[in-house]
Nucleic acid binder design. Sequence first.
DNA 1: CCTTCTGCTTGCGGCGGCGCAAAGAGCGGG
DNA 2: CCCGCTCTTTGCGCCGCCGCAAGCAGAAGG
Lengths: 238, 238
Amino acid sequence: MPPSPDPAVLRGMPLFAGLDADALAEVVRHARPRRVPKGTPIFSQGETAAAGHALIDGRVKIVQTGPDGQQVVMRFIGPGEMFGTLAIFTDGLYPADAVAVSDSLALSWPTAAMTVLMERHPAIAMNALTIVGDRLREVQNRLREVSTERVERRIAHALIRLVRQAGRRVEAGVEIDFPLSRQDVAEMTGTTLHTVSRTLSAWESQGIVESGRQQVVIRKPHALVAIAEDLPPLRPDR
Amino acid sequence: MPPSPDPAVLRGMPLFAGLDADALAEVVRHARPRRVPKGTPIFSQGETAAAGHALIDGRVKIVQTGPDGQQVVMRFIGPGEMFGTLAIFTDGLYPADAVAVSDSLALSWPTAAMTVLMERHPAIAMNALTIVGDRLREVQNRLREVSTERVERRIAHALIRLVRQAGRRVEAGVEIDFPLSRQDVAEMTGTTLHTVSRTLSAWESQGIVESGRQQVVIRKPHALVAIAEDLPPLRPDR
DNA sequence: CCTTCTGCTTGCGGCGGCGCAAAGAGCGGG
DNA sequence: CCCGCTCTTTGCGCCGCCGCAAGCAGAAGG
């Protein structure tokens, strides 16, 4: 028999919040677990969505590709978050690629099962509505940023979001806890890896961040916020 | 007694698709109609959302304002579309301003009523999920565009969307059927009114558009598509 | 251990588009 | 009908950022 996952993993997932134990058991019965090694694609843009997914562990990058091959990072998925579900609610085609950036473990629900579950448990639909609503608001904010702010502030905003989502306390400050390249940051902020590199170098020389190969540590989060909010440049003296 | 609107106006609203006559009557019973003259704000960014809205007639502009006053047009709402509902699904605060750009008629449902209706009629929640999902996809596409494309293509894309949403056949071509300023287009595409003006002037001299004060007519939609998709420049001869 | 590959840095030149400024052009109100 | 307001046009100069190119460094793999 196929290994059915432990219902406990659904605890704490916003998508299934408010369901009783029976319902959770039913949900988990339809789920299929999948181990995904770092670098492996989970689904691709344009495919018909065979399933919706939720991440148990690891980190997944959602990337949209334009007609000329330009890539934009839509978001990073962390443990407890769903992904690839937009297709289910809309036209059935994945609007982006999903690729594991760390070794990951995901659960998948076949599209049909997902639909049935939402009909039998309207709370799931309501939860989904909240989640999709939150994401819409976030993307709207990013749209405003990329439309009106200059590159340095956009990069600051992106890092702040990453810290909130994936920050881990470490001696030197707060570290983004998954491999993140300059290119990734560039694709999150609508710029080039060159400009990101220059910006991080400048911040590094000011002691705001420490960064290396696919790795970023924020030493002075408040300074980053100051840049993002364009506060008075924060004189070091007095 | 308060004038209850005709249930027939809900026909064709995606949000209430699939509801039977009884349910529609119940929905309409909770609605409050509101006439909104051109230029009037309907709600403001940051307010707690007292109600969700749907537009019966007219046109409403949804504008988000950044911390430094920079404005971004999130979308234009046409008849049959809901707006100001995101707040209800998320944190209860309107994330943007809504202002009528034409004389308009809207229906409003108090937040509490909206919630109750969704609980009693899960189909509404499912419809909302589809609608919000579609908007999320659209905003994601715009985010990709503004992140990767140059201004001219972005403006072309914006006009194409407007034509799809609010295009009216007219002798000279297709007209955007509500007042649309250069400033509006700039705020839709993350540029300045100057650049929009220059671009439209260039297109005008090529016979692609005809535009004047708060008014745009597309004479050669295919040429606009060619610009948006960056097809071979479409030699006029042969 | 050496090779290769991938990711990062940095200089330099060019240019797309912004910001400013000033002038025209419809529109509406008195 | 004229005045004032808002929207638009267009020139000009500058600059933030991109694009290219070359070199470096650390990881991976034989």
